[in-house]
């Protein structure tokens, strides 16, 4: 449920919002729906990754040119070891490294702030 909600609302808002839109979405949803902290972290992270990686792969496959390889090439230019990796894999890894902690910690923060407010009341 949490996963689906973050995925759907995250996707909808990301279409209009800045790149970090997934963070407030995870935060608010985890604030509103009581969760265990670990579940909030991992579900938010996983939903964020699904959203970013899923849409990335979709755009990559649908494109008529391999922009992914060109952009990945900028990152692997000085690192021959990475040059043999498929470009989309590199993009997936980097996207995951960005969105997982951002979304995860935002979700966790939602739970923790909820706890803080509750315990203060």
């Amino acid at each position: 449920m949490l996963y689906i909600l973050i995925l759907l609302l995250g996707g909808a808002f990301s279409y209009f919002g800045p790149w970090w839109t997934i963070a407030p979405v995870s935060f608010v949803i985890c604030f509103c729906l009581p969760q265990k902290p670990s579940a909030a972290f991992w579900t938010s992270a996983f939903a964020g990754v699904t959203l970013w990686v899923g849409y990335s792969v979709y755009l990559h496959i649908g494109a008529d040119t391999d922009l992914t390889a060109r952009v990945a090439g900028i990152f692997t230019a000085g690192v021959p070891a990475l040059a043999d990796m498929p470009a989309i894999a590199l993009v997936v890894i980097l996207a995951t490294l960005v969105v997982a902690p951002v979304s995860g910690f935002a979700g966790l923060a939602g739970v923790k702030i909820r706890q803080l407010i509750r315990s203060s009341l």
């Binding site: 040119t65 993009v91 960005v98 969105v99």
Partner: peptide, 15 residues
């Protein structure tokens, strides 16, 4: 990295 690899606003929008 955030702006660049977010598929909604990042470089993949240029593909």
């Amino acid at each position: 990295l955030g702006k660049l690899f977010n598929p909604f606003v990042g470089f993949l929008q240029n593909a």
